[in-house]
Design a protein around this nucleic acid. Sequence first.
DNA 1: ATAATAACCTGAGGGC
DNA 2: TGCCCTCAGGTTATTA
Length: 269
Amino acid sequence: MPELPEVETTRRGLEPHLRGQPVTRIDIRQPRLRWPVPEAIQNFRGHSLRNLKRRGKYLIFNFGEDYWLWHLGMSGSLRLLPPEAAPAAHEHVRVDFGNGPTLRYRDPRRFGALLCGSGDPLHHPLLADLGPEPLSDAFDGAWLHERCQRRSSAIKTVIMDSHVVVGVGNIYACESLFLAGINPKTRANRLSPGRAERLARSIRDVLSAAIDQGGTTLRDFTRSDGQPGYFAQRLNVYGQNGDCPRCGRGIRRIVQAQRSTFYCPGCQH
DNA sequence: ATAATAACCTGAGGGC
DNA sequence: TGCCCTCAGGTTATTA
């Protein structure tokens, strides 16, 4: 479900409510996520949340010395609900902070993860080798072009590789390539510096616009307050089966690396 | 190192 | 209604 804009939307929705609040209760209703939720998570009772950060699609709950890493996987969502609200189906984790609303984690497919650690979270094995943030200065056309040099696979799968750049999932990969006018099947090492520059800019623009819209709600993504994201109205190719809004040719669907790719054969070369 | 594939799960929707 | 198939916003582990 969530790519970078949805995770960032979640972070922005949660942080003002949770920052500075102590964890008063942790209820793991289903520990079997992508990896088992560590027993040590219970040790955080009484700890106060310093801040809530994001790296790629990971949320980082900072508690000073220790931290949680929370990944929403394919179908995960975090919401704030009143303490008395009954748990929804597939609500696997509930965390009470102070006396305010309670944090609920719902994840039907259980591809998400809740892990904990101490020290610098950026040194965690899952984060240590990640590529740059797409909205930071570290990510630009030169970096992208350099990382494409040794890659003969399709450009679409390369921009979805978190070691190249983080946060670009299936929707935004398709949309970025459309915006840049690049065929998703193009071999990465055949992308000119100029086209890499254009693609890097498109990725930034698409992700920024999606964050501004509160992310994309296709089926069940909701912001932490239950509202949907509105970027779905701006999708040009992803999930579309009609004609291209720019040139009128039919949008095509193909499969790359076991994922659907949508593109316009008229606009993307 | 890179590339391709399977694997982890549940639910929705279409066709018959 | 039920069954079978395909599809779904992610990532890692394993194998060539």
